[in-house]
């Protein structure tokens, strides 16, 4: 029997967070049912619930590192991820689990066998399928509160800035210097922060590039035909998994305006030594 009370409150229950503090939570199943009954878009249903102080159960283990107030900010945020390879796939998956309300994802490629060593969602069944479509489908199952717009295109033209009109942060998960420079120009045009990440061997780098600060040019300017480290060292799964996490942290900091939101330093992590260093560029 369907309960007659179609309020969020009637479906909420009390749970304790990991600090033992009581909070009201609600299951995905109830949110899906209510959205359907009340004819409210799913992402709106999640937002309404959180605004009433009722936390979707799926976010309980985020507390208190990500507070209810911060989950609300994330639910109303829009992020673009350009490139859905080793880095991009993990970032798209992670931002979906974190509950970033809207993701715009860009990649023209299909999964192929050389992706199987590192790219999440690359498997026997998805080979030959467009990456962004696979990810849209998989992430819908991971978190139905997240709207994903899949763009099966390359971002190669500075005039593609309209695609980023509604976002607050752009993530650079590309793998060619020229495209990264173009993306930095677009981010500059849109006045948006760009979370750059790249990997080679068992290490990689993360850096937030601010509009027109010229630092992408420092990283890639005049280097179009130089032999890049990843061509000599490869890209085993460890480094994209690590660097994607650092990129997601930078996205969180930018969206929530906390921690090193204004820290421009380049992080370089080497898992082999291991070492982690910060550099000012």
């Amino acid at each position: 029997m369907m309960p007659k009370d179609h309020s969020l409150e009637s479906r909420a229950r009390i749970e304790k967070d990991c600090q033992g503090k009581s909070c009201r939570v609600i299951c995905d199943q109830d949110l899906l049912a209510l959205a359907d009954i009340l004819n409210i878009p799913l992402h709106q249903m999640y937002l309404q619930s959180m605004e009433k102080g009722i936390l979707p159960l799926r976010y309980l283990r985020n507390m208190p590192s990500i507070t209810l107030k911060e989950q609300i900010i994330l639910q109303t945020s829009q992020v673009a991820v350009v490139g859905a390879g080793g880095l991009g796939g993990r970032i798209i998956e992670g931002l979906s689990r974190l509950g970033v309300g809207t993701l715009h994802i860009f990649d023209p490629d299909l999964f192929d066998e050389t992706n199987l060593n590192r790219q999440i969602f690359a498997d026997q069944n998805t080979l030959g399928t467009p990456k962004v479509e696979v990810m849209q489908e998989c992430c819908r199952l991971i978190n139905p509160a997240v709207r994903i717009t899949a763009h099966r295109i390359a971002v190669k033209d500075q005039n593609q800035d309209a695609l980023f009109a509604d976002v607050q942060v752009i993530v650079d998960a590309l793998d060619t210097p020229g495209d990264r420079l173009t993306l930095a120009a677009i981010a500059g045009k849109c006045r948006l922060p760009l979370v750059h990440g790249t990997v080679a061997g068992f290490g990689g780098r993360v850096m937030v590039i601010h509009p027109l600060d010229g630092r992408m040019e420092m990283l890639y300017g005049g280097q179009e035909d130089a032999c890049s480290a990843e061509h000599q060292l490869g890209t085993p799964v460890l480094s994209p998994a690590l660097i994607a996490s650092f990129q997601m942290m930078a996205v969180l900091n930018l969206l929530l305006g906390k921690n090193q939101a204004t820290d421009n330093r380049m992080i370089y992590a080497d898992m082999e030594k291991p070492s982690l260093d910060l550099f000012e560029l």
Binding site: G86, A173, D175, P177, A229
Partner: peptide, 10 residues
Amino acid sequence: VGIFPPIGGG
């Protein structure tokens, strides 16, 4: 001193 090559993998 820290020295880096170009890095571009993704």
